[in-house]
Design a protein around this nucleic acid. Structure first.
Length: 467
RNA sequence: GCCCCCAUCGUCUAGUGGCCUAGGACACCACCCUUUCAAGGUGGCGGCACGGGUUCGAAUCCCGUUGGGGGUGCCA
């Protein structure tokens, strides 16, 4: 086992993996690797999560997708919060025995009433009542006088006056540990040295630090990284926002692009390039350089990164990356009509045009569809346009005669047809494109015609001409 | 209510007292290239929230204001 620093990443399984969580995981991972430490995965599981092991598996899969592999020596875990329940209760017991925690028999309703009557939160009602453990009684931490300073690597020193911290609950009325206690005990048990997490946890940190100390341990290095927000500058949430890493994966975002983009939120790589490989990021990343303010997760910029990453892929890797999208059941053509060789022939021009992989089927569908469908609007704009039918007829004729079926010849032929009608190639190609592909826009036409083949091209041209 | 955090183009950021006439990227606009659409090239638009200090000098340091966000559970 490594003796270096130990970074813990502790997501709660909720059925999906949050992009904000992904960024925090990446921070921990980069640090663990650069500092020759350990990335410890601990799942903050709940009853529901325990009944759904696939949620935990989803986290592990998503981590693997962004390059955090559970079989890497840097990786330790997964552990589960519930595995440590005994230690958590034992710690609470020690706190009670030592007098830094006490039992209270007030119910939430009773506390609520006292608050309405003027108490600012829980007012320490049972502090000196000497109550012992009993069903229905919660164990509360006795917050001492004074103040706690949290030394945060991102934010500097943050001071919290204990007067503003109420005696928080350690053990529920049924004796089970609360999150705060569980968290601290687990971290101590696992000898965690660095806690890197989202800023929303900062207000809880003095309580945790107090617990670390009360339990006789030296608090870890804290680092609270800025939140990821939506256009309304609110914390990203599953309900309002597209936050599931799995969804981006399904839409054809490349893991490398996602990782790179995530790392530019709240931090920027040294130098003037923002598209940089993970290896460079791993070497350069440090918490001291992380921004203090929340960052908007901009899908458009993510898409721009993704397009860049797609274009940089060697063509065979691009083809491989497209496979799941071309073999998906959602594909618009009958599966048996798919022809990998035809796609491969078009791949390099498609690659230049996709910003996400899920756009790819729509770009090449005409190759595999039995008959492309043209809607009325497209028909009116192109086929019904003046001169279009003449171009169509003449091109069909010429293409039937063409000695060799390849892109250059197809282009030259259509250019000649266009000249006779005083049409530039840009205009002349329009009806042909629509007749063959069903669309006004798409990949370069003559390459597409070559790949589709003479028979099919002629058939489609005649089909439209006679309609 | 109370506590805490934050504040540079629309967005992500560079900037740590003089290299700032504030740099880059995404988005947007224009032009070029062109076989439609992209990609690429060139150019443009656009910002230090406000008010006080400190200093010879402030985007940078301090205070305040305003604005935004987070936290405040017998949730995690």
């Amino acid at each position: 086992m490594s003796s270096g620093p130990r970074f813990r990443f502790a997501p709660s399984p909720t059925g999906f993996f949050h992009v904000g969580g992904a960024r925090t995981a990446l921070y921990n991972w980069a640090l663990a690797r650069r500092l020759q430490g350990t990335f410890v995965l601990r799942i903050e599981d709940t009853d529901e999560a325990r009944n759904r092991p696939e949620w935990t598996q989803g986290i592990i899969d998503a981590l693997a997708w962004i390059g955090i592999h559970s079989d890497d020596p840097t990786f330790e875990g997964p552990y589960f919060q519930s595995d440590y329940a005994e230690a958590q209760v034992a710690a609470a017991r020690r706190l009670f025995d030592g007098g830094t925690a006490y039992y209270c028999d007030l119910t939430s309703e009773q506390i609520h009433e006292r608050v309405k009557a003027g108490a600012g939160g829980y007012d320490g009602y049972s502090r000196d009542r000497g109550l012992g453990p009993a069903p229905g009684r919660v164990l509360r931490f006795r917050v001492p006088q004074g103040a706690t300073t949290v030394h945060d690597l991102v934010r500097g020193d943050v001071v919290f006056d204990h007067a503003t911290i109420e005696d928080f609950v350690l053990l529920r009325g049924d004796g089970t540990p609360m999150f705060l206690l569980a968290n601290v005990v687990d971290d101590i048990e696992m000898r965690i040295s660095h806690v890197v997490r989202a800023e929303e946890h900062l207000p809880n940190t003095p309580k945790q630090q107090l617990l670390w100390q009360a339990l006789g341990s030296h608090p870890p290095v804290w680092a609270h990284v800025p939140l990821l927000v939506n256009e309304q500058r609110k914390k990203l949430s599953k309900r309002r926002d597209k936050v599931a890493v799995e969804q981006y994966r399904a839409e054809g975002y490349l893991a490398a692009a996602m990782v790179n983009y995530l790392m530019t939120l709240g931090w920027s790589p040294p130098g003037d390039q923002e598209i940089v490989p993970w290896a460079a990021i791993e070497q350069a990343f440090q918490l001291e350089d992380v921004n203090h303010s929340p960052a908007f997760f901009d899908v458009r910029k993510l898409a721009a990164f993704n397009g860049e990453y797609i274009r940089r892929l060697p063509v065979d890797e691009f083809i491989a990356a497209c496979r799941p999208f071309l073999e998906s059941p959602d594909v618009p053509w009958p599966a048996e009509r798919f022809d990998a060789a035809k796609f491969a022939a078009m791949a390099s021009v498609v690659q230049l045009r996709a910003s996400t992989l899920d756009e790819v089927p729509g770009v090449v569908d005409f190759l595999f569809l039995a008959d492309p469908v043209l809607d009325e609007e497209v028909w009116a704009k192109t086929i019904a346009a003046p001169g279009a039918r003449d171009v169509l007829a003449e091109a069909t004729e010429a293409y039937q005669q063409l000695p060799e079926w390849h892109a250059a010849a197809l282009k030259a032929t259509l250019e000649a047809v266009g000249e006779r009608h005083a049409l530039k190639l840009g205009k002349a190609q329009a009806p042909i494109r629509v007749a063959v592909t069903g669309r006004t826009v798409g990949p370069p036409l003559f390459e597409a015609l070559e790949v589709l083949g003479r028979g099919e091209v002629i058939r489609r041209l005649i089909l439209v001409a006679t309609a």
